[in-house]
Design a protein around this nucleic acid. Sequence first.
DNA 1: GCCGTTTTCGGCCCGACTGTTTTCAGTCG
Length: 576
Amino acid sequence: MDNKKIASIFEEMADIFDIKGDSVFKINAYRKAGHVIANFPYDLRDVVAKDPRQLENIPSVGKGLKDKIIELVNTGKCEEHDELRKAIPKGLLELLEIRGIGPKKVKALYLNLKVQSINDLKEACEKHKVRDLLGMGKKTENEIMKAISEHAYFSTKRHLISEAMQEAKRVISFMEKCDDVKRIGYAGSLRRRQETIGDIDILVTVKNPKKSSETVMTYFNSYREILTILSKGDTKSSVVLQSGIQVDLRVIDDESFGAAMHYFTGSKDHNIKIRDLAKKKGLKINEYGVFKGEKMIAGKTEEEVFKSVGLPYIIPENRYNNGEIEYGLKNKKFPEFIELKDMKGDLHNHTTYSDGKASIEEMAEAFIAKGYEYFAVTDHSSIMAIVNGMSTKDIQRQWKEIDELNKKLKGKIRILKGCEVDILKDGSLDFNDDVLKQLDIVVISAHMYGTLPYDAQTERLLTAIENPYAKILGHPTGRLINKRAPMEFDMEKVIEACVQNHVAIEINSSPSRLDLPDIFIKIAKDKGAKFVIDTDSHSVEQPDFMEYGVFNARRGWLTKDDVLNTKSLGKFDTYF
DNA sequence: GCCGTTTTCGGCCCGACTGTTTTCAGTCG
Ligand SMILES: Nc1nc2c(ncn2[C@H]2C[C@H](O)[C@@H](COP(=O)(O)OP(=O)(O)OP(=O)(O)O)O2)c(=O)[nH]1
Ligand SMILES: [Mg+2]
Ligand SMILES: [Mg+2]
Ligand SMILES: [Zn+2]
């Protein structure tokens, strides 16, 4: 019963309350708690074991949910949840996945037509029974049919940020060709640089909405990659692209740029909190501006919006209502978070010596182009035979090549000798000490035995971290977004061991890893950890991934000083 | 169900689009 499971139970309870028609505020409370718990960095099992009263300090958890969490942790289930599940057929919940179908329609379809699954719904539409229900008609039926086939065709998974970003840039360059567009930019989770992206949100401003919005919308809907147009109005249109990703376009008066960008960047929880603050000050904030009565008093820039509620500018990466607003109100100023330009090197990369696609020299050229001072070559160790892991002979041959290249590239870049050495099942490392002690950089990574039980996994990682040659803990959870779940282990213990043993924690920038995950970065910093931000490059293009790691580091409140590879050679090795 | 610089009750963000409606509910952002 980990945090994610507890969160999903509260979210499911919210859905069932919703279908039953319970209080919308209670439903929101369950949903919010689910969301907070899914992103809560401390393991609730530990909180319950140490001091269950602390649960009430979690925002959105009060007396009621505290008891439910305790029940879930101790017994593995929750009585009220079980009763709710019995109260409705299981298949009703999957109906909510269909676009345009919400709790009210689910209830009506079930009560009137005995619809209990997506299949039932499809049949009901085909037999034209849905159109007879109150509030539904022929068009509703058609839309549902369309939405069902879309649901069957496209995966419901969230998108990698790298892929969403590419798609967004194509849409934006198309939209830029429309003369009526004044300013354009991506918003939503993409602008917040969230680890995964649900859809692409794009904001367009125009000089004269009355004159231009229709033109802009029509132009948008002519984009050749569009599969379906979901909606089209004066200010807003949603479409689905051939690739299955949804694009939401919002068109607003350029005078409202700041308020619109703030609204559309979110997150939703951040927006709600900001609007609530405004309300308490006698103001109203929406996407058009900040209003005192009828009068717009701010909204040209995001800074104005924040200022109206007493806040300094908050970077998009941090807009989650998970502490940034309280901090801003109190301190009026944020730390200077790390930036991409602070990076001086990359300490985890692969070459043709294992599963990389480029030679050491080609990688060196790629990093020189980035303006770095140094990079480490860290190919796989021998147990990773499936990715051509290196034997001792291989790595010795590699050292020779690095020595020669370092002579050749002197003054341009410095290549460090390293290895991504596998953590074996017992926590020992996959090279002997003779090899390890000659390396500048030892990244220790677990690629195998990812499904060991919680305690065994924790012990294994601790043993590896305590190895005197270990320098960097590579992609700590081992997750592959949408493909492989993170390993289960005691994250707090692992972080603490890294701090004690002076092992830097990697923030792996590869978009399918993003590991250490963002939610743990801040608690690791608070425990005194040092970090490296690496790309784990396997080709000359992948050094570009660095920005994704930096964005996550910013979300984790890291400054330059927290990250070793913002320092020059010789300035960070003392940590290891 | 949660929460408190209007503290233990009475609020809880605010708005666009669609389809069906004759004034708005449902869904979504
Ligand atoms: N005030 C307010 N703003 C919202 C609400 N829902 C969405 N927004 C704003 C903030 C969101 O970041 C933005 C885009 O909505 P999305 O549904 O696309 O969410 P977002 O991009 O944050 O995450 P995603 O990766 O798409 O799931 O619209 C809401 O209920 N209230
Ligand atoms: Mg979005
Ligand atoms: Mg969206
Ligand atoms: Zn690697």
